[in-house]
Design a protein around this nucleic acid. Structure first.
Length: 869
RNA sequence: GCGGACGUGGCGGAAUUGGUAGACGCGCGGGCCUCAGAAGCCCGUGAUGGCGACAUCGUGGAGGUUCAAAUCCUCUCGUCCGCACCA
């Protein structure tokens, strides 16, 4: 052990040693309890950023903690290596996407190793390698067999900038989730996965995981699935024998207030009667269609527009004839694509009716008279509703639904916001969809034994038009698997969310060539015990992956329904940015001079050279803001251990983390302090007695107590998912060691024991945060070169008796105000505490001459004396 | 508009879940060491008043429940996030 702390040196040493010994490589072991710790796999952009560092530091901390408790910890990593940037690079720089991707993986892997994250690298996977995407295709075929994959000619979201289709989620709000461009609509045949088949289960099974998942993630998913209960009701189209218009409504109780049926502009009935409409109507419908196809900016409210088609329909409840309109606010993709318009009891219908001067008839009376305005959307008492008049809304809904069912023109129904998952992408860099189109046989699946359908080496990357695959004739032209005739391959590739939906199952059995993974491996390791990632994946990835697990259960691959027991959503890493008002641009922190007042509050910031005013803000890191921090630079200056320690200490994991260089300096100071202390005591520790000596000094007893209390606290924090406070506890323990004022040469047996115990505790509890430093210190005090885990180092189990304080400070209050503190033996009874409190001089001053009404005693805490007068 | 979360020193954040508010770190102030600096070490640091022991105030604001509230309840202000014609 060097006298001084040289992080680069020890970090290299231990990274090599871990690799040599395979410290983090694991295999199923029925003797040990398993723990599967997972972080969201990165896209191999080529550079690690601070968000990654945070993500992996959290995962590694918990992995170490569990490992040190004797768990068999699976902690893998891989690459989400299909996707647009590689293809963009191919278009812009003419590089081969495969080479580009492999290079980036190489670089990021090196960075991860420099960080010293304890991964089982033997299980690494990468989505773009055929041995992985073969099983994307395998799953697709299995789902096709099960009827869970289908092809449908459908309108898709098209991003003109990325030149690709987007899922509904990716196009949410009318803008591309990746580049922010407005999304257009296009019609084309698409492959879909039937996630909607699992909508109910995805909702119901939330009860299985609600203890371990953040409430807001489940709420977001719930809203996304958007289950809505109501009824379908059919209106007969006037003048037509058996054409009916079906509407979905949650408020069948308002059906006597219907003044019109409003159809989506692309409703089949509109299509069917289109030619019979007057020319003005046709024009208006075309206009509405165009308007709906246009993406809408966030927050922008679209004015309602519509046109009466001239058709009319009969309200089966009232026998009333109502006009049929087309409206721009009705969506074909939700419910039945038709609504019954009830302007008195629905805001949208009200707005529509006001604009076009349609009848407004109230059929539900508010029960409390608080309701104002002409539209009342609450529940109330029915009126003007035939035999249902007088009923409460809720009763009426039940009764009217039953009536519709009996009469055969309606039934209760459920509708979801969730759509099926469109997976077709007009891209090269993704898993080919294993389908062949044959002139006589149609769409024919490639047989499983022929997988993988490999991507060609390269393709012409022009950046425009169809998928590049369509231009690779060797790829496109093939034979029909069924009839052997010449046929063409599907040239769309799969959404990359397919790759990331099941990657963590591949870690369980990464070499398997016959199946995505071995069922027994999954039995041992799954479900994931802790999954850590950003909140931005709350809906898409995390909903897809829950769906995928249920699908795998149904094809017999796994025996459970939920893949992740506990989810931790980590906050962003942000940086301080400096904006020069004179230059009207961001400037580097180094060029800024900060002035503070006596309390340390920043009062002024100016440029060092010109003195121009500078505005300081905390913003997402970015090149343009000059506030990005490169993990490699930080590791070089402070060491990986200090970076990791700071990242964990600076904020609770779910919060934003403000990167501050002064903060990381504090982290290094702490590590150095620990280092110096261990260096000074290392031989005394090595020769310390193994058993507790009898003659412990008061100070030694206090040090032991602190060590055991720290172990108790940290264990509790880890178990509850708190990672910042343990660092504070470690610092306290380190401070207590620093306060232990015995020189090594005068240390008694008892002193050496207490110091040795506290130091070993400290080192092991430091390992989750700063593993290299902990390993080096451990080696210095134990002389074992195999590393902490292999040499049997275990997370300290605290001894309650040792941790217990013998004397406790008791707060004494008079009328709830703190007036004094007294020392009392631990566990003293209420009477003793009260007597002690009353005997205190300061308390007497506050109670003399007053009548004591009541005395409240909280054992080991406080005494509150309530007085009058 | 609907839904959700959160407001604690100059800053990041603690607080055994109703029981001594501000742990720990940063920043700031003072001191020791040093030729000097860096590093390190020691002391102080919520606000106001007082030489002081101490007193008063204090967890966005206003009420309330309680012997006792950062924590529970009501209202209110603010910040952030999600959804947004979903019938």
């Amino acid at each position: 052990m060097d006298e001084k702390y040289f992080p680069a040196k020890i970090e290299r040493k231990w990274q090599e040693r871990w690799a040599e010994r395979g410290t983090f490589e694991v295999a199923p072991d029925d003797e040990k309890r398993k723990f599967y710790c997972l972080e969201m796999l990165p896209y191999p952009s080529g550079r690690l950023h601070m968000g990654h560092v945070r993500n992996y530091s959290i995962g590694d901390a918990l992995s170490w903690y569990k490992r040190l408790q004797g768990f068999n910890v699976l902690h893998p990593i891989g690459w989400d290596s299909f996707g647009q940037p590689a293809e963009q690079a191919a278009i812009k720089q003419g590089v081969n996407p495969r080479d580009w991707t492999e290079d980036n993986i190489e670089q990021m892997k090196a960075q991860l190793k420099t960080l010293g994250i304890g991964y089982d690298w033997s299980r690494e996977m990468a989505a773009h390698r055929p041995d992985y995407y073969k099983f994307d295709q395998w799953f697709f075929l299995k789902m096709l067999e099960k009827g869970l994959a289908y092809r449908k000619d459908s309108e898709v979201n098209w991003c003109p900038k990325c030149e690709t289709t987007l899922s509904n989620e990716q196009a949410s709000g009318g803008i591309c989730w990746r580049c922010g461009s407005p999304v257009e609509k296009q019609n084309r045949p698409q492959w879909f996965l039937k996630i909607t088949d699992y909508a109910d289960e995805l909702l119901a099974d939330m009860s299985e995981i609600e203890d371990g998942w953040p409430e807001r993630v489940l709420t977001m998913q719930k809203n996304w699935i958007g289950k809505s209960k109501g009824a379908n009701v059919r209106f007969a189209l006037s003048g037509s024998e058996n054409t009916q218009i079906e509407v979905f409504t949650t408020r069948i109780d308002t059906i006597f207030g219907v003044n019109a049926i409003v159809l989506a502009p692309d409703h089949p009935i509109v299509e069917e009667h289109f030619e019979s409409f007057e020319s003005g109507v046709r024009e208006k419908i075309v206009e509405i269609r165009a308007g709906q196809a246009k993406p809408v900016d966030y927050g922008e409210e679209v004015e309602k527009a519509g046109v009466a088609t001239g058709l009319s329909a009969v309200n089966s409840f009232s026998s009333e004839e109502v006009p049929v309109w087309v409206g721009n606010y009705v969506l074909m993709s939700y419910g039945t694509g038709a609504v019954m318009s009830v302007p008195a009891h629905d805001e949208r219908d009200g707005e529509f009716a006001r604009k076009y001067d349609l009848d407004i008839r109230h059929v539900v009376m508010p029960v409390d008279e608080e309701a104002e305005g002409d539209v009342f959307t609450g529940y109330g008492k029915l009126e003007n509703s035939g035999e249902w008049s007088g009923l409460d809304s809720k009763e009426a809904i039940l009764s009217m639904t039953t009536h519709a069912e009996t009469e055969g023109f309606g039934e209760s129904a459920e509708t979801y916001r969730l759509r099926d998952w469109g997976i077709s992408r007009q891209r090269f860099w993704g898993a080919p969809i294993p389908i062949v189109y044959c002139a006589s046989c149609g769409a024919v699946p490639v047989s499983i034994s022929e997988l993988p359908v490999e991507l060609p080496e390269s393709a012409p990357f022009t950046g425009v038009g169809e998928s590049p695959l369509a231009k690779v004739s060797d790829f496109v032209n093939t034979e029909c698997p069924k009839c052997g005739e010449a046929a063409k391959r599907e040239t769309d590739t799969m959404d990359t969310f397919v790759d990331s939906t099941w990657y963590y199952y591949r870690y369980l059995d990464p070499q398997n060539g016959d199946a995505p993974f071995d069922k027994e491996a999954a039995e041992y390791w799954m479900p994931v015990d802790l999954y850590i990632g950003g909140i931005d994946h709350a809906v898409m990835h995390l909903l897809y992956t829950r769906f995928w697990t249920k699908m795998m259960r149904d094809i017999g691959l796994v025996s459970f329904s939920e893949p992740v027991n506990r989810l931790l959503t980590q906050g962003m890493v942000v940086g301080e940015s400096f904006y020069s008002k004179d230059a009207e641009s961001y400037v580097f922190a180094d060029d800024v001079e900060i002035e503070r007042d006596d309390a340390g509050k920043i009062v002024n910031a100016r440029m060092k050279d010109g003195g121009g005013e500078v505005r300081i803000a905390v913003e997402k890191m970015g090149k343009s803001k000059l506030n990005g921090v490169d993990p490699d630079d930080m590791i070089e200056v402070y060491g990986a251990d200090a970076v990791r320690l700071f990242v964990m200490f600076a904020a609770p994991v779910e919060n934003e983390l403000v990167w501050q260089e002064s903060g990381i300096e504090g982290a290094v100071r702490f590590l150095q302090r620990v280092w110096r202390f261990v260096h000074k005591w290392r031989s005394s520790i090595a020769s310390a007695p193994r058993e507790v000596p009898n003659d412990l000094s008061k100070e030694a007893v206090a040090l032991r107590r602190k060590a055991h209390q720290t172990a108790a606290k940290i264990t509790e924090s880890f178990e509850s998912g708190q990672f910042n406070t343990p660092v504070a506890s470690l610092m306290e323990l380190s401070n207590a060691l620093g306060d232990f004022k015995v020189e090594t040469e005068n240390a008694s047996e008892g002193d050496r024991f207490a110091v040795s115990e506290a130091v070993r505790f400290l080192i092991i509890m430091l390992a989750p945060y700063s593993p290299h430093t902990a390993e080096e210190l451990w080696e210095a005090v134990t002389n074992s070169e195999t590393g902490i885990v292999e040499s049997g180092g275990r997370f300290p189990v605290f001894d309650e008796e040792v941790a217990e304080e013998s004397e406790i400070e008791i707060a004494v209050q008079v009328n709830g105000k703190l007036r004094s503190k007294v020392m009392a033996p631990a566990g003293a009874d209420n009477q003793t505490l009260e007597n002690l409190a009353r005997a205190d001089g300061k308390i007497a001053d506050h109670t003399n001459g007053k009548e004591v009404i009541k005395v409240i005693v909280v054992p080991n805490r406080l005494v509150n004396i309530v007085v009058k007068g």
